[in-house]
Every structure is written in C-alpha cells, then in structure tokens.
C-alpha cells in the first residue's frame, strides 16, 4: 500500500453556516506541498472513511509564494500552502481558513479588508499621471534601496494579520503590513511629500498606537519582511510629527 498523507480540514459551506471537520487521505508523492495535495484531493473528494463529499474550496494561483493567494492555517500557523512541503509537516496536517478573516467557503476567506486599509493609509506615491515626464525619480542609494526592497515585497497575503493579537473583527487596527507600506512610501524621495498625510492616517484611531508589540507578525511573514523594524521607525516618525503638529510646522 502506498504511503498516505493525512489531513484534517476545517470545512464551512458558507459564511453563515457552522464549521465542521473532515479527515482525508492523499497518496504520498515526492515533492508534494499542501496545495498540490489539495489539487489531488479535489479530483476525487472522499473522506478517510470513504464518504463522497463536496471538494474543498481554497484559493491559489502562482504556486511560487509570490502572489499571496493560498494563505491558510497549516498546523495552526498562517502561511502559504504552496510553500508548505508535506515532508516537513507533522501529520495529520491540520488545515484551517486564515484566522481573522470572514470565511467565504472552506479555506477561502475574504481579505478585502487588507486592500481597504491600504487605501486608508494612502499607500501610493502621488504622480501627475502615468505618462512620461522625461525624467525618473530622484536617486536612491543602494543601501536605502535594500531597506526599501524588503518592504516592497509584501504580497498582502494576510499572514501577519492572522498572527497579530491586536488585529481582528471588532478592532480597526490597520495592522503591520499597512504600517510597513507607510514606512516604504514615506522613504521614497517624492513619496515623502505626502508623509504627513500618511502619518496622520496612522496616528488616528486604529493606527500605530494599537500595536501591542507581540512581534508575531515578523515571525510568520513568508517574505521575512522586518515588520517590527518598520513599526519602530514609524514610532519615532510619529513622535516627531506630533511635535510638528504642536508647533504648527508640516
């Protein structure tokens, strides 16, 4: 008999229905990750006890840990399913929808809140238009580039938010990912022009001061983004901004 991969998956048929658990077995193959095993399972969705059920719904796309789609809780840890190799995981592998987000169906969650928050903190550079102005942006030193590049790899996957004790329903904390984007945009040579607006956005309710410094975010980020460093830097920026606000300077 071939070796089997054992899964326990938290199912939920819709946003309003109660979750339930099902166990599944998938034949082991070298190189399997959580998503590739789920792909095998969906072709013939039968529980471990042989009951025919509806296929498990979940999101995935790039399969290279760069699109952020397949975030889920794998053995209790928020991460990208495609990069979770079966051979590295303890079995039965427990899959749950990404914490903190409303469940759509099974392992599919609604992450619209992430993108709403990016609007709230104005995570973009103001440009006159997407046409050529016959020059680029001002120069950026290689050192500064390297620091910025860590933050620009954030794929809005939501793992840091799932791990953050402060983030969640009933709280409007913007979360570490949005804070890191403020750090990134404020560092850009022309992004700096709108620094004050972004800082004000994170000085408001649900902003920087809601961070409880648990440091979970930085431990789960699949891109190893130094989220807590960004939060520390922003702390200093916000203090300076408070002073500027007090003395009437922008």
């Amino acid at each position: 008999m071939t070796e089997q991969i054992e899964f326990r998956i938290r199912r939920q048929d819709g946003p309003e229905t109660a979750p339930y658990w099902q166990a599944f077995r998938v034949p082991w193959r070298p190189g399997h990750n959580v998503v590739s095993a789920l792909m095998v399972l969906r072709e013939n969705p039968e529980t471990a006890s042989g009951e025919r059920v509806q296929p498990v719904a979940w999101e995935f796309n790039c399969m290279e840990e760069v699109c952020g789609a397949c975030s889920m809780m794998v053995n209790g840890v928020p991460r990208q399913g495609c990069a979770a190799l079966i051979d590295d995981l303890e079995q039965p592998i427990v899959l749950e929808p990404l914490a903190k987000f409303p469940v759509v169906r099974d392992l599919m969650v609604d992450r619209a809140a992430i993108f709403g928050t990016l609007q709230r903190v104005k995570a973009w550079i103001e440009i006159d238009g997407a046409w050529s102005v016959h020059q680029g942006a001002p120069r950026i030193s290689p050192q500064e580039w390297l620091e910025n590049y860590h933050y620009s790899q954030c794929m809005s996957c939501g793992c840091c938010l799932a791990a953050c004790p402060q983030y969640g329903p009933g709280n409007d904390f913007v979360g570490p990912n949005a804070l890191a984007q403020v750090r990134l945009m404020n560092a850009h040579p022309t992004g700096r022009y709108n620094r004050t607006e972004r800082l004000h956005a994170i000085m408001a309710e649900g902003g920087l001061s809601d961070c409880g410094n648990a440091q979970n975010c930085v431990r789960v980020c699949p891109k190893e983004i130094p989220l807590t460093t960004a939060i520390g830097e922003l702390g200093r920026e916000v203090t300076l901004q408070l002073a500027r606000d007090l003395f009437g300077k922008s």
Binding site: I127, A130, W131, V133, G136, S141, P142, W145, H188
Partner: peptide
Amino acid sequence: IQTFERMGVTFSR
C-alpha cells in the same frame, strides 16, 4: 521605466 520609477518601483541601484 522612468514612469514606473516615479510610481515608487524599487529598481535595483
């Protein structure tokens, strides 16, 4: 490319 740079794309330096 310059337009992308103005948008803040982190091109290597």
